[in-house]
Design a protein around this nucleic acid. Structure first.
Lengths: 230, 230
DNA sequence: CGTGGCATTGATGTAATTCAAAAGACGTGG
DNA sequence: CCACGTCTTTTGAATTACATCAATGCCACG
């Protein structure tokens, strides 16, 4: 999945449904270092984007300065698209990232004549819907432990790491907190509880292994692992 | 917007982008009383639906019995669609409702040949995305008062009630609680705080007027109206 | 006129935020 | 290589806000 940093690009045939005729002529690749801005809120939508490697976050800023992470983006995810012609969120890279981008108006033109492109746009939208719905269910949990557990299960599910057992969390605890709408300290405490009860273990602070998947699932329901307090 | 209960149906020309050639032959109308099931979770997707009048909710049930309201549906909203062929949520009417429904496979067939239909499907998906994103921002608020205030503002925005000043909340406090992921009592207390501080006023329990829109907006940021406690 | 579902209110315990501080990770430049 | 500063993560103590339990009021409906 890692494609390197720049220069000549191999064909992206790894992503299913990705060899859409006409699309490859529209795509250009860009690379981002960590914490670079991909697009800003209120900016006109010039491109649609597809994650090739790395990870990114989609954010919203409240007038009072609070940040919300609306979505984490992983390879295969298409983002920055929609009916509207201005971005309602900003997007930033979380780690070193490569992104394919497509001029918006040319995609829309192409979608008018090319049915496969049109169908592809639909599929992308459907995927975005299901990702957002999954996210809604996570945020719907009332306790901190349930939310963090649900987040880990979602992340494990989305983050296909090949045969690797450990899963990497490229984002900071702050990012996770802003994603789950809770304080950083609470996120950290939840991780600590899960670790001390041997539900997860740390390779390092941003790499974990899920030891007891069943306990994690129970934790999302708030039944097992009652609270953060011992 | 009220179309009556059955019999001959007028042309639905009120909804923008709604006279799609070929679509009207697919649509049939159904009416629901309050709290009727439109479709169940895990059921195969036979139809896609469009709200004509009334209101509905899309729900998810946790294994432990907790309910989450994923979305409220209002006239114009299209729901129950997606790439998948089983429903991942259930849908129930909140009040007396009329719904237009379209056989799923025939829509998909039609979308293959008819570009306007394909474009329409995209538009519906985009709308669903923006609705879900708005919802995510609401759930992202940390305090109860902020969430309830954000909900009211969203609802006012979506619920176009013509020239009427008051806005009606057809759903129960339980529905709101399950939508905002909080306890019913907390929702009730938030309403009470907003009422006693003259930010909103009640016509009756399910009909309110927003008196101080500015204060409501401030409340979503958690700055004004510090807490539920006096 | 009672019954049952919905809504509100009060009292209490618990869990999460907040404030504060320390420890760990990481890079920079001496 | 180590000292230093900054950022991230963790932990502790105090406070606040929410969930829960319990009770009452409120309608609508039979």
């Amino acid at each position: 999945m890692e494609l390197g940093t720049s220069g000549a690009w191999p064909n992206i045939t790894a992503d299913p449904g990705w060899n859409i005729p006409g699309m490859e002529r529209l795509e250009t690749f860009v690379t981002c270092a960590t914490d670079e801005t991909i697009y800003r809120c209120d900016e006109p939508v010039r491109y649609w984007y597809r994650m090739v490697s790395g990870s990114a976050r989609k954010c919203s800023m409240s007038p009072d300065g609070r940040r919300q992470v609306v979505d984490f983006l992983l390879p295969g995810d298409v983002f920055g698209f929609g009916a509207d012609d201005v971005h309602h969120f900003s997007a930033e890279s979380v780690s070193e990232t490569t992104i394919a981008r497509y001029p918006r108006h040319r995609i829309l033109e192409l979608a008018e004549s090319e049915m496969p492109v049109s169908r592809w746009v639909c599929e992308m939208a459907f995927e975005a819907v299901s990702r957002l719905q999954a996210r809604t269910l996570i945020l719907g949990h009332t306790t901190a432990l349930a939310r963090v557990s649900a987040f880990l299960l979602e992340w494990e599910d989305r983050y296909e790491q090949g045969t690797d057992i450990a899963i990497s969390l490229p984002m900071s605890r702050y990012d996770i907190a802003d994603y789950l709408a809770m304080a950083v300290e609470t996120v950290s405490r939840a991780f600590t509880v899960l670790r001390t009860r041997r539900v997860i273990s740390f390779c390092n602070k941003r790499r974990i292994t899920i030891c007891d998947r069943h306990a994690l699932r129970l934790a999302t329901e708030g039944t097992y692992l009652e609270s953060l307090a011992s």
